[in-house]
Computed example of a mutant assay.
Amino acid sequence: MTVIVRDLRTEDRDDAERFARSRHRALPHLLWTAEGTLHLLAHTPPAARRRALVAEADGEVIGTAQVDLVHDSPEPGQGCFTVYVAPERARRGAGTALVRACEEHLAAHGATKLFAWVLDAPAHRAFAERHGYRAARHAHFLRLDLTAATLPPLQPAPPGVQLRPAAGFADDPRPLFALDLETAADEPSDVESGSAGYQEWAASTWEHPMLDRELSMVALVDGVPAAFSLAHTDGRGRYATAMTGTARAFRGRGLAKLTKNASLHRARAAGVTEALTGNDGGNGPMLAVNSWLGYEIVATEVRYVRELG
């Protein structure tokens, strides 16, 4: 069997659908859609050199990769990629071919330090280590069954706090951009990146086809956006938290719990059956919020690092 690695055909929606289905088979703990995949490719800055790759055998997509430079980092020469192969198509050379293609692409554009997420399972970790990568930080995937879960009761907003869906900011989402910018800067990470400008954020985040503005919730304190929880949905009863955060001046007041719980209640009322989220292993406060909401860890991944040369 010959494995061919090629770029995703961005003009072919069916190819994007195959890409998303392959990713879902390999990693069902995230939302994958053709529209989301194509949107991300179309709205990533050119300097990131982003590519979506497909490993194909006998006309079947058996593996995928996403790869890009950390173009806005103060530390130059960093690149990231993720490789997933459908479990039933493992050990046919697709993973190795995709890793090689990602490494060659990043090295050709000046990357010398490569980061890749790998599922925390013996076979996956051994694969990364055989290719010269060493383990670093870890993160968790979490799941909540909204058909069976008992969500915490909705609490009245504290005095001076108002809850609004993100749809209420359709005329001017800039306050949400500022909030996202501040909270994202404090997320634990081993890859430091710069801040997106408003136009880039609006295109990539606010206009994302999976962003559900009615289920995304914002807490305002005396009229100022102080916390939010952004929700993605796939139109098939699945929901994923894209970001939850609280501005530094308002932390410790339970606003992240307030917004995310309200979002989940609205999601269940809208017919959503499954909620997904993810947290860095060092993000204790958000892991505690998700535990309070009833989420359970269903998988863990490990960030692996390799320095070229």
Rank of each mutant, 00 (worst) to 15 (best):
T2C: 03
L8F: 08
R9L: 07
R23G: 15
H24L: 15
L31N: 01
W32S: 02
W32E: 00
A34K: 10
L38H: 04
L40C: 02
L41S: 09
A42V: 08
A57Q: 12
D58F: 03
V61D: 06
G63T: 07
D68M: 11
D72L: 09
P87C: 11
R89T: 05
E104W: 08
A111K: 01
H124G: 05
R125T: 12
H131F: 12
A139N: 14
L144Q: 08
L144E: 01
T150C: 01
P153H: 13
V161S: 06
A167K: 11
A170D: 15
R174I: 07
P175L: 07
E182D: 14
E182Y: 12
D186A: 14
P188W: 14
V191N: 12
E192S: 06
S193Y: 02
E200P: 02
A202T: 06
L211C: 08
S216M: 09
M217N: 04
A219T: 07
V221D: 04
F228T: 11
S229R: 01
S229C: 08
T233K: 12
G237Y: 01
T241N: 13
G252Y: 13
G254T: 12
K260G: 03
R266T: 05
A269L: 07
G271T: 04
G278Y: 14
P285E: 05
P285M: 10
M286Y: 04
M286H: 01
G294Q: 01
Y295F: 14
V302Y: 00
